[in-house]
Measured scan of single mutants.
Amino acid sequence: GKMTGIVKWFNADKGFGFITPDDGSKDVFVHFSAIQNDGYKSLDEGQKVSFTIESGAKGPAAGNVTSL
Rank of each mutant, 00 (worst) to 15 (best):
N37T: 14
I6M: 10
F18G: 02
T66P: 02
Y40D: 08
G56M: 08
G59S: 05
S67T: 15
G56A: 10
Q36N: 09
F51Q: 01
V65W: 00
V49W: 00
G5T: 01
P21R: 02
K41V: 06
V7Y: 00
V49S: 01
I53P: 07
D23L: 07
D22F: 05
H31R: 05
G5D: 00
F32P: 04
Y40F: 12
S55Y: 14
K48C: 10
S67M: 14
A61Q: 15
Q47R: 06
P60F: 09
G63W: 11
L43H: 01
G1T: 14
F29C: 05
G63N: 13
K58H: 08
G24Y: 06
N11L: 06
G39R: 09
S25T: 12
T4L: 10
G46N: 07
K14F: 07
M3C: 10
S33M: 05
G59V: 04
G17I: 02
W9Q: 08
G24Q: 09
V7W: 02
F18D: 03
K2H: 04
A57C: 11
A61D: 03
G24K: 09
G5Q: 00
I35D: 04
N37D: 15
K41D: 07
D38Q: 12
K58C: 07
G63Y: 12
I6Y: 11
G63E: 10
V49Q: 00
F32N: 12
F16A: 04
L43Q: 00
F18P: 01
L43G: 01
K26N: 11
A57L: 14
F18M: 07
A34P: 02
S42W: 07
T52K: 08
L43K: 00
G5S: 00
V49Y: 01
D44G: 12
S50P: 01
K8L: 03
H31E: 09
L43P: 03
S42A: 12
S55V: 12
F32R: 15
D22V: 06
I6W: 07
E45R: 15
P60I: 11
F10W: 09
S42K: 14
S42L: 11
F16N: 04
D22Y: 05
M3F: 15
V30I: 05
V30N: 02
V65A: 02
D27N: 05
D13A: 15
N37C: 15
K14E: 08
A62P: 02
Y40N: 15
D38L: 11
G56V: 05
K8R: 10
V49P: 00
I6D: 05
N11S: 13
S67F: 14
E45M: 14
A61S: 12
L68E: 11
Q47F: 03
D38M: 09
D23R: 08
E54Y: 14
S50K: 07
H31F: 02
L43N: 00
S42C: 14
V30T: 04
P21Q: 03
K41T: 08
I6K: 11
D27F: 00
P60G: 05
V49E: 01
D38V: 12
G17Y: 03
D22A: 07
D22N: 08
A34H: 06
G39F: 07
V28T: 04
F29M: 07
F51C: 02
G59H: 05
G46D: 05
G15Y: 02
S55D: 10
I6E: 10
F51D: 02
D38P: 11
I53S: 06
S55G: 12
N37Y: 14
G5M: 00
T20C: 14
G15T: 02
D23K: 08
G24D: 04
L68K: 05
G59I: 04
G24P: 03
Q36L: 12
G1R: 08
G56N: 13
L68H: 10
V28A: 04
D13T: 15
M3V: 13
G24S: 08
P60S: 07
A61I: 13
D22Q: 06
G59C: 05
D23C: 08
V28C: 07
F18E: 08
S50T: 13
T20V: 15
I35L: 08
K2Q: 07
D44I: 11
S42T: 14
F10V: 04
G59Y: 06
K2G: 05
G59D: 04
I19D: 00
T52C: 09
A34Q: 13
M3H: 08
G46K: 06
W9R: 06
L68G: 07
A12M: 11
Q47D: 15
K8Q: 05
K58Y: 08
L68T: 10
I19C: 01
Y40G: 12
K41H: 07
A34T: 08
G24C: 07
G59K: 05
M3G: 07
S67K: 14
F10M: 03
L68A: 10
S33I: 02
E54P: 02
Q36V: 14
I53C: 11
G46I: 02
G5W: 00
H31N: 06
